[in-house]
Design a protein around this nucleic acid. Structure first.
Lengths: 118, 118
DNA sequence: ACTATCCACAACCATATGGTAGTGGATTCC
DNA sequence: GGAATCCACTACCATATGGTTGTGGATAGT
């Protein structure tokens, strides 16, 4: 694996448990134990999830006695925001044009078979 | 796997090839062949990557003759932006506080061993 | 000192993914 | 019609990940 920092960040964010942990940590630091309780997962699994967040540099872990306190790194979230915002001009100027494109594609016999079921 | 729409989106974004494809598509729709050329990957692999992007609803694929034209869905990127921006208040009010927190953690004997090597 | 609590480490399993190679169906060009 | 192009489908492989169970080391409470 290359040292794809942004990729590691997105991979860490792809799991709903880890995103819920991020939301929890956005309201303040918490111990591993405190993070385990609301999620109905084993302590070992929570530790694994935290390890992914730490590896992605989204969370900082620090020992305090027998506890490990997890803290959310604000910059990590900002990196994601920056990535998305770099396409802001694209999506803003596309919202009206896309309508036309979709109509064109439907005329061209869309080969998409599976329903997405929004 | 639950129908974790946002998770599927983040997973799709975790690969650098797919992010490069997104950047390419942000400059306009392209056929699978056109997407294959700049990436030095097999056509089959590009098709797989496109399939992930389509599954995440980031890209729309439409057949036009023997070609498949891929179009970037602007909303998909906006969803990511919205997620990150929902933490904007957290990171903005945390940037100064984090400095204090880090100092506290260092006092508390950080158990982190491995260097991250930024 | 003894025990309970907090946490990490290891082994193990099933599945998804990045990647390869081979092949075959459509469509376009000649 | 025949050949070349565009693309998808399949089988296959190695690795990463989500998850389990078991265990053991530290630290805190008594």
């Amino acid at each position: 694996m290359v040292v794809d920092s942004l990729g590691t960040t997105f991979a860490a964010l792809s799991d709903p448990t880890r995103r819920a942990m991020i939301e929890r940590l956005s309201r303040g630091p918490a111990s591993v134990h405190a993070l385990t309780e609301p999620f109905a997962l084993s302590q070992q699994m929570i530790s694994k999830h935290i390890a992914y967040l730490v590896r992605a540099r989204i969370v900082i872990k620090a020992k305090r006695g027998r506890e490990s306190i997890c803290t959310l790194r604000p910059e990590a979230i900002k990196i994601v925001s920056d990535w998305a915002i770099s396409y802001r001009q694209f999506w803003e100027e596309s919202f009206d044009k896309l309508d036309v494109v979709v109509k064109q594609m439907k005329k061209a016999e869309v080969g998409d078979d599976k329903e997405h079921g929004e």
